[in-house]
Design a protein around this nucleic acid. Sequence first.
DNA 1: AATAATTAATAAATTATTTTATTAATATAG
DNA 2: CTATATTAATAAAATAATTTATTAATTATT
Lengths: 413, 413
Amino acid sequence: MKQNKHSIFNDIPDEQKSGVVFKNHQLKKKIIKLLDKKGATTINDISKKFNSSSPKVNKLIQELIDEGLIEDLGKAETDVGRRPHLYGLIGDSMYFLGVDLGRNSIEIGLMDFNENPIHFSRDIEFNLENSEKSLLQLCDIINRFIDQNPGWRNKIVRIGVNLSGRVNHLSGYSHNFFNFTKTPLSSILEEKTGVPCFIENDTRARAFYEFYSHKSKDSGNILYINADYGLGLGVLAQGRLLYGKSGYAGEFGHIPFFENEIICICGKKGCLETEVSGRALEKQFKDKLKEGQSSSLQHSFANLENIRMDDIIKAANNDDTLSIELIGVMAEKLGKGITTLIHLYNPELIIFGGALAKSKDHFFLPLQMTVNKYSLSIVRADTQLELSKGTEGAGVLGACYLAKHKVLNPNPS
Amino acid sequence: MKQNKHSIFNDIPDEQKSGVVFKNHQLKKKIIKLLDKKGATTINDISKKFNSSSPKVNKLIQELIDEGLIEDLGKAETDVGRRPHLYGLIGDSMYFLGVDLGRNSIEIGLMDFNENPIHFSRDIEFNLENSEKSLLQLCDIINRFIDQNPGWRNKIVRIGVNLSGRVNHLSGYSHNFFNFTKTPLSSILEEKTGVPCFIENDTRARAFYEFYSHKSKDSGNILYINADYGLGLGVLAQGRLLYGKSGYAGEFGHIPFFENEIICICGKKGCLETEVSGRALEKQFKDKLKEGQSSSLQHSFANLENIRMDDIIKAANNDDTLSIELIGVMAEKLGKGITTLIHLYNPELIIFGGALAKSKDHFFLPLQMTVNKYSLSIVRADTQLELSKGTEGAGVLGACYLAKHKVLNPNPS
DNA sequence: AATAATTAATAAATTATTTTATTAATATAG
DNA sequence: CTATATTAATAAAATAATTTATTAATTATT
């Protein structure tokens, strides 16, 4: 495959690992990271920040300009003295590609360094199977997306691919899909596309989108609850995604929470998910109808078994009393679970997303009430609760943001 | 106060922040960190590790020898070629001081860079009050400890002080004690002793001792449960102590867990601690006696109200059936809580300490059974459960280890 | 036992970086 | 409108680092 032009974020050869070339390379990366964080910056500020002389920084800046990565943004406004030049990233110089694998479709998106969307394709037909054929099809779809525009391939510096199930982001192995080769999945993708790739769990990628796109992220302790058909959790602790020993951290849906007899999809009984999830909501709704309770949905469905989570949520938003009640009770139960999370992670923010969060206040108000009831006020005071805006393509965006994050922070998570 | 001689871990003046002096200083610190981690190392290995030339490393090594921090350990064994010299830290060149504040006593310990104990003083009389007098007394005790040996003061590079309650390790403010000044507590201690100081929550310091002294700490995801009069938790997530937004992370004892009517010391009802803690055990034990159940302890106590947690644990270890039963039931309840922790943190190890853990198998076996019963086997498989060895002076040792850790890792937590 | 092969340490040569001095650009005061 | 003060950028000088060549130390081999 074609080699990416932008070597700045590719590893440099081993023989150069010692010496000046390597150190200049490192410093250039640091400069780019700084410009990304702070925006337009002067040579003096950069040289102070990195304890490097201004002639040295000047030289590297000139090289970065020649490489097409940064540009001179003119002079800064100052009160006195000669005005320094400002330098900033050329957002269009580098791209990130995000891929979100669903069961029956793929979504792909391209984002530039300034986080502007370049192009998105939704609902690309794809049959996810644990087979080599399916994997090759995936690579083909990605390559065809990239080749839509001849200028793109050379600009893409990293590709992130979201998969459901257990994913080892460090080794690049997926546990549930494409696990038939000795080579890590990420390496195969890399070989087929010619661009460095990584894989990530889809809920965590979505969570990362929420974390990254949110304004207030002071201390970096944020939780994202995905209340959908299942119940997922993504954790950002002290600025880093939490994985735990093998990537299971945040298995919120399966903590033992109820003394009930409902068997969870995980095989255990009493999991939080057995009573708090879209799946549980469907079950509870149908049970109530069988018990003789009424709902506006009865008119729309000939066969009540066809009622789905989304229908119930829509009904609640159209004032269906039974739906509102069930969602409210569920939110109260979730609130107690959230209190546990607040005490264990002491987050500054919890964001609620997924289908259930779409029922807005019917879900959010009882949730908040319960959290207030059960939590220590001194701990609770730290934590802000928020509904997700439910942005389309959060998964793909999360993969793109993660790609950018990994490019700028190669060492830790 | 006398200034510490070892400037290597003190911040260098601002005017030197640019330039060669600063960079050499940084590289020397990196060398010391490497020697601490890897033990005896050659100049070539160091220069490769840090992308620095061997003449440069050679020069810095000579300087470090002159400063008395490292020593030439003779030649390495090699198969072929000239044998390189090995260099290693002089453990005795730098000390760490740990201070553990109890309600009525202080414990102080001194440890060298190789983690050898130098001197420990237990049960120093001290009355902890939120007053300036009490604070001055504390400083006096610390200074008197240091002055026991005229050679110590100059060798101590950092002092760690453990306090109960909420502690901000970053700002240096304590929430519950010595909170009457605008100056952070850590700065006051620093001024009075002439050595850089930090403060930390006592449970977290204890937890850090357990993490640091344990052999297997691969991925750095470890929990420490302090099952004592209260119920505490210390979390090491991805190699870093977990604090959360304001240092409340790990408030395990106060998660809403029971539908009971017992008012917790925190003011809420239903907290895990209301039924799982030494405090709860005392209450339950006395209630059972009042209900007419019998125990061997009835013979030893004229007034049954004087029975304490430690007596019940001792009784259990001497085959007292009632004590064993109560501890067993408590361990089962804790097991369910532990399962929640396993699902949320996916740790590789959980260590159980505190007084309750001293009842060994009476506590540990029912605990393990319950964890196995409630947890997802695939997540559970990652987690090893262990009883703490219950080392004397774990708090002071934790403060010393933390001091060393902070000296070697100044940037993150 | 002498020699070749190998690697470490050091010295010398080369290259790179920083420091300083100089020139350029800009605002303010007289 | 010019002089002065102030800061940026650049050039020159000084310093420091790396690279290379050389010498030293060591094992295996002839």
